[in-house]
């Protein structure tokens, strides 16, 4: 669990405002001020394990570990503020696993049970085309996703493959201006 405090690889693209943001964020981000969720004390962890008989798939929200440096599949995650974060992932892990492992801010509220759209990601065209079609269940959830595109998927349904090496996965921006019912917020 404590590998989270290892400094991340953050590559600021020499393009627009995002470069500045990336630098500003990288200084403060590794595990700063996020004590509860990931740095679980042992006692808490045991408590969670004891309760694992429930219907939960992943209580502690841990990742599945990281590949040895240089041996994994390189994925670039483009956050909604333009920051690019580059990580290495294991083949076969899904995008939410990767997010949990690297603390990438994908929420995954339903813990990969295809019951919400909070792990929505946008893929590059060629990667999207190589995947199997989304299931009806996944499409039902994508219907509700914020900022849906033609190459949107639920991250929990996308397994990392060798072909993805070097691809960029975009995390959609979600603001309160995008509502599930499509209504525009009005001043009240």
């Amino acid at each position: 669990m404590f590998s989270r405090s290892v400094a991340r690889l953050i590559i600021a693209r020499p393009s627009p405002a995002s470069a500045v943001r990336a630098l500003a964020t990288s200084a403060s981000s590794p595990s700063a001020g996020a004590p509860s969720r990931f740095l679980a004390p042992a006692a808490k962890h045991n408590q969670l394990i004891q309760r694992a008989f429930s219907n939960s798939a992943a209580l502690a929200h841990g990742g599945k570990g990281r590949p040895k440096k240089g041996e994994g599949i390189t994925l670039h995650f483009k956050k909604s503020n333009g920051e690019i974060e580059t990580v290495e992932a294991n083949e076969g892990d899904d995008i939410v696993d990767v997010s949990w492992e690297w603390d990438l801010d994908i929420e995954a509220a339903c813990e990969k049970s295809i019951a919400c759209s909070t792990c929505h990601v946008i893929l590059e065209d060629d990667i999207y085309d190589k995947l199997e079609e989304p299931s009806d269940d996944e499409n039902d959830m994508l219907d509700l996703a914020f900022g849906l595109t033609d190459t949107s998927r639920l991250g929990c349904q996308v397994k990392v493959t060798k072909e993805m090496d070097g691809t960029t996965i975009t995390l959609p921006s979600a603001t309160r201006n995008l509502r599930v019912d499509g209504s525009k917020p009005t001043p009240h």
Partner: peptide, 29 residues
């Protein structure tokens, strides 16, 4: 303030401000 690592949910506060500041402070308590 610029948000810390808050992109998925964040209201992106003032994109214009960050283009001219060299290192906008992250949201911190």
């Amino acid at each position: 303030r610029q948000l810390r690592a808050a992109p998925t949910a964040g209201r992106q506060l003032s994109t214009s401000a960050t283009t001219r500041s060299s290192a906008a402070p992250a949201l911190t308590l």
